[in-house]
């Protein structure tokens, strides 16, 4: 069950982390492959934020499709179903080029655009204290100046092997969120580039020792990943057996959206739409 394609990899990863956190160690290749599928990480949110405003975002759709083309490997608890195809690295580099072009385009059209600045700069600034109190996470939190990224704070999977920076904003307004997302896309490309170089030629693709039906001992676990919208957490309570007793999802969009009232009050109606777009909600996460 995924709540948001094509960012499903991040969420499936969280679910799997929750399941085999205690007992099983997945092999490195598994983690690497799972990571590669997070290429399209912030591409979507940027598109969502920009879409209301101008048509260059339609060009982003092309790169989004290109990235979805890369997702050719099914993920399973413990690993992946197949090894990647032979031309994967070449294909991935081609996709990365397209994404880079798309990001540069958006950068050229939007970042210095006076009209864009006039609309977005200074709109609903959020202080770090407010952000933490309201439960923000992800780019919204980082735009306010809080340097908190789960990939650094609690490295999961193989993120500790990669060298990347965490972009942080100053004012927490809509323009800062846009900038943070744009820069995160560039850092994601950097990560994927390093992953492609570090990927071994062959190796195991599935953890050994996994049964068809996974039985976990009684207990509870909360596993969280850094999804494009923020902290995506999965909380599972098990009473033994193969079915969870409780499975709760902490969706980042839901928590970010809950602060909409605080951010919108005092602004124009036309600006409310912009603020909503900048939160970048994924409705299936919000509704669940």
């Amino acid at each position: 069950m995924t709540l948001d394609e094509p960012f499903a990899p991040a969420e499936r990863l969280a679910a799997r982390l929750a399941i085999w956190r205690q007992r099983l160690r997945a092999t490195p290749l598994v983690d690497l492959l799972a990571l590669l599928l997070d290429v399209s990480e912030p591409l979507g949110p940027l598109g969502a934020q920009v879409l209301w405003v101008a048509q260059p975002a339609l060009g982003l759709m092309v790169s989004r499709e290109a990235v979805a083309d890369l997702a050719q490997v099914l993920e399973r608890p413990g690993g992946v179903a197949w090894d990647v195809p032979d031309d994967f690295e070449e294909h991935a580099r081609y996709v990365l080029d397209r994404v880079r072009t798309a990001i540069d385009d958006i950068d050229g059209i939007m970042t210095e655009n006076e009209v864009f600045l006039a609309r977005c700069r200074g709109l609903s600034p959020v202080t770090p204290e407010q952000a933490i109190n309201w439960g923000f996470s992800g780019p919204m939190l980082r735009a306010t100046g809080v340097k908190h990224d789960l990939r650094r704070a609690e490295p999961y999977s193989i993120y500790d092997r990669f060298d990347f920076e965490i972009p942080v904003g100053t004012q927490g307004d809509v323009y800062d969120r846009y900038l943070v997302r744009l820069e995160e896309m560039r850092q994601s490309i950097r990560i994927v580039d390093q992953a492609l170089r570090q990927m071994p030629k062959n190796g195991p693709i599935m953890a050994s020792g996994l049964k068809r039906t996974i039985r976990v001992p009684p207990g509870e676990v909360y596993a969280r990943t850094e999804s494009p919208r923020g902290e995506y957490g999965v909380y599972i309570v098990s009473k033994g057996g193969d079915k969870p007793w409780r499975h709760k999802v902490r969706a980042a969009s839901f928590c970010n959206l809950s602060a909409l009232r605080n951010m919108v009050v005092g602004n124009y109606v036309a600006d409310a739409i912009i603020i909503l777009g900048s939160i970048d909600i994924v409705l299936c996460e919000v509704d669940r």
Partner: peptide, 12 residues
């Protein structure tokens, strides 16, 4: 210009 510009708000 139509392809490159977002809209200005009415008061702006």
């Amino acid at each position: 210009m139509r392809a490159a510009m977002p809209r200005l708000r009415v008061d702006q």
